[in-house]
Simulated assay, not measured.
Amino acid sequence: MRRFGEPVKSGQKYILRPGVYAVLPREGSMLVTHQMHPYTEVQLPGGGIDPGESPLQALHREVLEETGWRIAPRRRLGAFRRFTFMPEYEIWAEKLCHIYLAQPVRKLADPTEPFHTALWMPSEDAVEELGNAGDRHFAASWLNG
């Protein structure tokens, strides 16, 4: 599986954190989330898969929490791993990131996830602004199709 981001730190213990994220295009734009804490970053909407939850259940829940939008998943684009420190949980994590292409269907509410704002950006700009290389890779792969 392809790996992006920081190299693995020798001797560092990592906790496996499976997650699911969505590339959300619509009419030349892409719906992304702007996270403002613990650091500022533009991200693909998504997050951790809770125990007992399927990846698609987690995708619907996370996108709704971070953007306020209902989605219709289309297909799985792939997966990648990255090793990183997660300051909000104070852990070193091996993030196993599953990426889906989905269609934003309807805005239901404002984001409920603290410190997140939903943003519509031109797709090309969104790809450039995404804060991690794995997100950029999958969004660019979809865009360049």
Rank of each mutant, 00 (worst) to 15 (best):
residue 30 M to R: 06
residue 6 E to P: 00
residue 88 E to I: 06
residue 61 R to I: 01
residue 40 T to F: 00
residue 20 V to S: 02
residue 126 A to F: 08
residue 115 F to Q: 12
residue 18 P to R: 12
residue 25 P to Y: 00
residue 134 G to K: 08
residue 56 L to H: 09
residue 67 T to K: 04
residue 112 T to G: 03
residue 123 S to E: 13
residue 60 H to A: 12
residue 98 H to M: 13
residue 135 D to A: 15
residue 86 M to L: 13
residue 33 T to H: 06
residue 74 R to P: 01
residue 18 P to G: 10
residue 17 R to C: 03
residue 92 W to N: 13
residue 67 T to R: 04
residue 66 E to L: 00
residue 74 R to D: 10
residue 91 I to C: 05
residue 136 R to C: 07
residue 102 A to N: 09
residue 48 G to Y: 10
residue 87 P to E: 08
residue 35 Q to K: 14
residue 100 Y to W: 15
residue 12 Q to T: 15
residue 55 P to Y: 11
residue 13 K to S: 14
residue 141 S to F: 02
residue 10 S to I: 01
residue 19 G to K: 09
residue 82 R to A: 03
residue 11 G to L: 10
residue 84 T to E: 15
residue 109 A to T: 13
residue 5 G to A: 12
residue 87 P to M: 07
residue 15 I to V: 08
residue 26 R to G: 02
residue 83 F to T: 11
residue 28 G to C: 00
residue 16 L to F: 10
residue 54 S to N: 05
residue 131 G to I: 12
residue 93 A to H: 05
residue 85 F to R: 15
residue 53 E to F: 08
residue 24 L to V: 06
residue 91 I to N: 06
residue 78 G to R: 09
residue 97 C to D: 13
residue 28 G to K: 00
residue 32 V to M: 05
residue 76 R to Q: 14
residue 130 L to M: 04
residue 63 V to C: 00
residue 101 L to H: 09
residue 73 P to R: 06
residue 42 V to H: 08
residue 127 V to G: 06
residue 68 G to A: 07
residue 88 E to L: 09
residue 127 V to Q: 06
residue 76 R to C: 11
residue 34 H to K: 14
residue 114 P to E: 10
residue 12 Q to H: 06
residue 138 F to D: 08
residue 10 S to Y: 03
residue 124 E to M: 07
residue 73 P to I: 01
residue 73 P to T: 03
residue 117 T to E: 14
residue 132 N to P: 06
residue 22 A to I: 05
residue 61 R to K: 10
residue 54 S to H: 08
residue 102 A to R: 08
residue 105 V to Q: 15
residue 29 S to P: 00
residue 136 R to W: 05
residue 36 M to Y: 01
residue 54 S to G: 07
residue 105 V to A: 13
residue 33 T to D: 09
residue 137 H to C: 03
residue 5 G to D: 13
residue 112 T to R: 12
residue 19 G to D: 09
residue 20 V to H: 04
residue 137 H to S: 04
residue 33 T to V: 14
residue 40 T to C: 07
residue 65 E to H: 11
residue 141 S to A: 15
residue 138 F to M: 12
residue 41 E to Y: 02
residue 39 Y to T: 06
residue 13 K to C: 07
residue 33 T to L: 03
residue 13 K to I: 14
residue 104 P to L: 03
residue 21 Y to I: 01
residue 138 F to H: 08
residue 90 E to Y: 08
residue 130 L to R: 06
residue 141 S to W: 10
residue 77 L to P: 07
residue 26 R to H: 13
residue 60 H to Q: 14
residue 137 H to R: 04
residue 97 C to H: 03
residue 47 G to T: 02
residue 91 I to P: 00
residue 40 T to E: 15
residue 68 G to P: 07
residue 135 D to Y: 14
residue 22 A to K: 08
residue 126 A to N: 09
residue 76 R to Y: 07
residue 51 P to A: 05
residue 108 L to A: 01
residue 62 E to S: 07
residue 116 H to Y: 14
residue 14 Y to P: 05
residue 88 E to H: 14
residue 98 H to V: 13
residue 8 V to R: 15
residue 89 Y to K: 14
residue 68 G to L: 06
residue 81 R to I: 00
residue 142 W to K: 11
residue 37 H to D: 05
residue 46 G to P: 07
residue 110 D to K: 13
residue 5 G to V: 11
residue 131 G to Y: 08
residue 123 S to Q: 11
residue 89 Y to T: 14
residue 33 T to F: 03
residue 94 E to L: 12
residue 117 T to V: 15
residue 21 Y to W: 13
residue 10 S to D: 01
residue 108 L to E: 14
residue 137 H to A: 11
residue 144 N to Y: 08
residue 97 C to P: 00
residue 139 A to R: 04
